[in-house]
Amino acid sequence: MASADSDTQPTEAIPHAVKIIVAGGFGAGKTTLVSSVSEIAPLSTEELMTEASYGVDDLGGVEEKTTTTVALDFGRITIGTDIVLYLFGTPGQDRFWFMWEELAAGALGAVVLADTRRLDTCFHAVDFFERKGVPFIVAVNRFEGSTEYSAEEVREALDVPEGVPVVAADARDRKSSKEVLVELVTHVLRSRQAAMSG
């Protein structure tokens, strides 16, 4: 109904709500990164999905469905009075692609957190953002005891183009996480300028 869209005159300024996605495999440090830069303790909601189960007991056409919950964690950074930035961690499991679609819609960009001990766990994220045209950077999260790889080695393994920044990060460290986000937004701006002039 048209009336539902009519403007209200709130007393406080309403900011733009924008988002950045933090993706990566399970245990890559997504929630850690979100927590370290968020101004609030990360909030969590869940999405329900119903899936048909293919159990061993064939009930002959009786639909057996199970409901699974997908946790969605997010943090918030207030950028002045006009903008609030939300940081969304992607659900770790690959089968929750439907959530990724919505997260990607309208996102400023994405950070793919890579864990070099299990680099393959972030392949899906790279594929997804490339396919969707969401600008992203790769942040290699440092883990105790993991071998140090150069950015070039990681870039080569992930097969990401030269223009996509690959940076080292420590998701536990606020300053480092902040720099990752700065790097992403700088990259997004640079890509836009290149696209406009080209």
Partner: peptide, 15 residues
């Protein structure tokens, strides 16, 4: 969109 990106960049840098 550009204004938002620039503002976000400035905001993040000043964190």
């Amino acid at each position: 969109h550009s204004d938002i990106l620039h503002a976000v960049l400035v905001g993040l840098r000043s964190l």
